[in-house]
Write a protein that binds this DNA or RNA. Structure first.
Lengths: 251, 251
DNA sequence: GTAGTTCCGAGAGCACTGCTCTCGAAGCGG
DNA sequence: CCGCTTCGAGAGCAGTGCTCTCGGAACTAC
């Protein structure tokens, strides 16, 4: 772990830079993150930090990766703490963890899920790995529940049919014929990539809940609801969770 | 309308500044919008534009208002073009208009619904008016459908009960007892403010669909889905629309 | 231990930004 | 025509990202 003293010192300095950058980010936001301010805080001249990070965008990338990992860790811990019996409880724990992290770290949340910083393109090869942890945890909850037969709704139905759940005669399983061709193709690719047993329609509804979850958290974190509209946004969120769970057929 | 020639010239210059700012915004994004660049494009020195806009943030506010109005107009036109018979068609037209405008104008969409520009706080008294047009149109579609008795789902049910729609004996109307107190209070305030006839649970699901819609559009516009995950995002969006409509009980 | 190499911080500098100030030249109303 | 307002130009200040050079320190090889 240690390497030469120089390498250790270098790593320590990079850690300091990232730490200061994280603090600056939390305080002034992503686009106002200044490498010179980081240098001042570090007690060093601005050109010195270029020995370590190369550019402002690279520091931003480091912070993106760190934030993704921290969010992913928070979500995974919350899901694990919910036990592995009740998939609905696991799902709700995931959603609440996302919301709470976003409200606790609005600037870093905005860095991940807000408008992309202009002129900055997150390098996919370094951010997709950490960035996938949340959706991966969500997909696993759903697929595990499906494998365990714990879903209350007919997973073969289309969304429309699921929501207006008419009882259908048993054995007349139709295999999601309502999904159009390209969507079916994409979903099949997702299923093989993640090794999913869940059928197309369930995966499609999973993506819906995924986007809807972040839509709800976005509105809260970015203040889109309006200043005084909801005195207790948590209650609204909990209500939304019930609907999300219903969409997925989670108990 | 005309006023003195000076006033007309002044108004014309402001219009030019906003137009150039809009072009810059579409090309380089919100945080990289430079007043000096606008001045260069206008063929004038930078200090001259300060005679008209006062600050960069004020130009940003003008662009926010303009973007809100343009989006609102696009949505209202799309809804009107869908006729007033089928509330489901009206709802789908609204959602598609939001998505298409966002994909057509990603930078301006990001200005409205992405992370807030650091150091810039949109003055509520000038932006909430135009900003409310989309959600107002959505609410009116839902409330009109409820008043017309066009909803297929039981609007009194909670989300959970709506989604797993068990047939209940007629006449046993329960009045959304599952909604917690503060949420009920907020929803009641919304209902009186907008003069809604729709019950709490329906309004709550309206806010869910509202946030979910923008969550889905956010993911597409901001590239959150991943580069090559969905070859035809429109198909996925249409599928999501079916589920949204089902949540609301729209046909 | 010394010589050579690598690393690192400081400083100057370039081009850019938002924004403020002054100054002189227009245009306008009385 | 005179006085006033408006406006554009220019200089300037403080800040930014980033590049370059230079001198000293630390490490490596002999």
């Amino acid at each position: 772990m240690a390497g030469t003293p120089r390498e250790r010192a270098r790593e320590q300095t990079i850690n300091d830079i990232v730490r200061i950058g994280r603090e600056q980010l939390s305080q002034v936001g992503a686009a106002a993150l200044s490498l010179r301010a980081v240098a001042r805080e570090l007690g060093v001249v601005s050109s010195a930090v270029y020995r370590y990070v190369g550019s402002r965008d690279e520091l931003l990338t480091l912070l993106v990766v760190e934030a993704y990992n921290e969010l992913g860790e928070a979500v995974e811990q919350a899901v694990a703490a919910a036990g592995d019996r009740n998939p609905g409880a696991r799902f709700r724990a995931l959603c609440r963890a996302v919301r709470e992290w976003g409200l606790r770290e609005p600037a870093r949340y905005a860095l991940l899920f807000g408008s992309p910083v202009p002129g900055y393109q997150a390098p996919a090869e370094r951010t997709t790995g950490p960035g996938i942890r949340v959706v991966f945890a969500l997909v696993r909850i759903i697929d595990d529940a499906y494998r365990a037969g714990a879903l209350t709704a007919d997973p073969e139905g289309t969304g429309q049919q699921l929501v207006r759940q008419e009882p259908r005669p048993q054995g007349s399983a139709h295999h999601g014929a309502a999904l159009p061709g390209p969507l079916h193709h994409d979903l099949a690719a997702i299923r093989t990539e993640f090794g999913l047993a869940a059928p197309d329609a369930l995966v499609a509804r999973g993506t819906l809940v995924w986007t809807a979850l972040f839509g709800a958290v976005n509105f809260e974190v970015f203040g889109q609801y309006g200043r005084e509209t909801f005195t207790d946004p948590g209650s609204l969120f909990e209500h939304h969770l019930d609907v999300f769970a219903g969409i997925l057929g989670l108990p």
